[in-house]
Write a protein that binds this DNA or RNA. Structure first.
Length: 255
DNA sequence: CCAGACGTTGTT
DNA sequence: GTCTGG
DNA sequence: CCAGACGTTGTT
DNA sequence: GTCTGG
């Protein structure tokens, strides 16, 4: 699954890499080695542009890097707090769930990441791992987003854009520490995933390619990452663990 | 009809 | 908002 | 995901 | 045990 990740690329670099325009303004989050639910994250979206009257130009699209709050809050929610529980969406059911399906068909995004954290359950204490591409490239996690209107007492309202990370069955080496993982999208799949005209994205939800997963490095890290108060590059550095704590291939084989 | 949920993960 | 359960 | 709280009244 | 907050 994905309940914690790392994002250190700045918006301009991401805009460059994802062929997008940096639309983060002044509220872009800083490099973050411990991104947790409810925090601000950077996302890539693609939409048909609208003019000042709100008329949509369907002949073209604009791809932008934006700031979102992690934890999807559907437009009908009474308050922001529901987002804390809507941090992941199962790719197998996202098109059917009332809280997610509109977003899945009309509001998909990419959530760039340096890598993500996974806690391997076991005897005693859980061992955290950091999973990151061996070649240092940027991961793109499949995401969905929504707008929630934060109303004040004077009748005004302010939009809050929120998002969730899609999950899928763990495959390859990932299955040795956990049975779920983020839906990672190879570069070849970015354009289709973001295409606002693909409103029936069933075939966009295919699992990650084996070679994409094979290119990931899985590294045990300090339990300091457990606390969101800790946030520094050391959280992603390898630590020595005992043989008993090494990822065991049989641990999470599918039943 | 109204009330209440709307989600995932892991663990037993 | 929309669906499910009672 | 993990960590940390989990409560109200009244008084300053 | 269960919920909220980050």
């Amino acid at each position: 699954m994905c309940g914690r990740f790392v994002s250190t690329r700045d918006p301009a670099s991401l805009a460059d890499e994802f062929l997008a325009v940096d639309a983060t303004g002044n509220d872009a989050p800083r490099a973050d080695y411990n991104v947790a639910p409810t925090k601000s994250v950077l996302a890539v979206v693609e939409r048909h542009p609208r003019d000042e009257e709100g008329t949509v130009d369907t002949s073209t699209t604009e791809r932008t890097v934006r700031v979102m709050r992690w934890g999807l809050v559907p437009h009908w929610a009474k308050d922001l707090s529901v987002g804390a529980r809507m941090i992941n969406a199962r790719s197998e059911s996202v098109l059917d769930k009332p809280a997610y399906r509109d977003s899945a068909s009309k509001r998909r995004c990419l959530l760039p990441a340096d890598g993500w954290y996974e806690w391997q359950p076991g005897e005693g204490r859980k061992q955290p791992f950091f999973i990151t591409p061996s070649d240092g490239s940027t991961l793109a996690m499949a995401g969905i987003w929504s707008v929630w209107w934060d109303r004040d007492d004077e009748g005004g309202s302010r939009p809050v854009v929120t998002c969730a990370v899609l999950t899928t069955d763990a495959i390859g080496e990932m299955a040795t520490i956990h049975h779920r993982m983020p839906l990672l999208l190879s570069r070849e799949r970015w354009a289709d995933w973001l295409d606002p005209d693909r409103t029936d994205p069933a075939d966009l939800l295919a699992p990650p390619e084996d070679d994409l997963v094979a290119g990931l490095e899985l590294r045990p890290v300090t339990t300091a990452v457990n606390s969101v108060k800790n946030n520094h590059p050391g959280l992603t550095e390898p630590v020595a663990i005992s043989a008993a704590e090494m990822p065991a291939p049989t641990l999470f084989e599918v039943t």
